[in-house]
């Protein structure tokens, strides 16, 4: 499947980026493609473009805070999880059903 993801944690210096790395690694292992946007202390990095969003099957939202520009994702199925899950058990995220 084609995934896109956004990661964001309150401090935005460690968890955000570790979660992004884990999601990328796990997606590769499971044979999915993924592009991960990080919303850390530096603001939005690796921003998802309109094409990325329209071309994706589902959005993984691994965030403990309200993400910026969330209205971009109004029309895409979502898997919403806390950041911690992407650190502890990223595989389980991909097993979830988007809604």
């Amino acid at each position: 499947m084609k995934f896109i993801a956004v990661t964001a944690c309150p401090t935005g210096i460690a968890h955000t980026y570790m979660a992004a790395e884990n999601l990328e690694k796990t997606a590769k292992e499971l044979g999915h493609t993924i592009k991960v946007e990080t919303q850390g202390a530096m603001g939005i990095e690796n921003e998802l473009s309109a094409e990325d969003i329209s071309g994706a099957d589902a959005l993984i939202l691994a965030a403990d805070i309200m993400i910026e520009n969330g209205e971009r994702f109004d029309n895409i199925p979502k898997i919403e999880v806390p950041v911690q899950l992407a650190l502890k058990d990223p595989k389980s995220i991909f097993a979830k059903k988007p809604c």
């Binding site: 964001a8 309150p10 401090t11 935005g12 202390a41 965030a63 805070i65 309200m66």
Partner: peptide, 14 residues
């Protein structure tokens, strides 16, 4: 609400 609070915290920390 936890998410809202943490969002505010994330802006206040710097």
């Amino acid at each position: 609400h936890k998410q809202y609070l943490l969002s505010g915290v994330s802006f206040a920390i710097p």
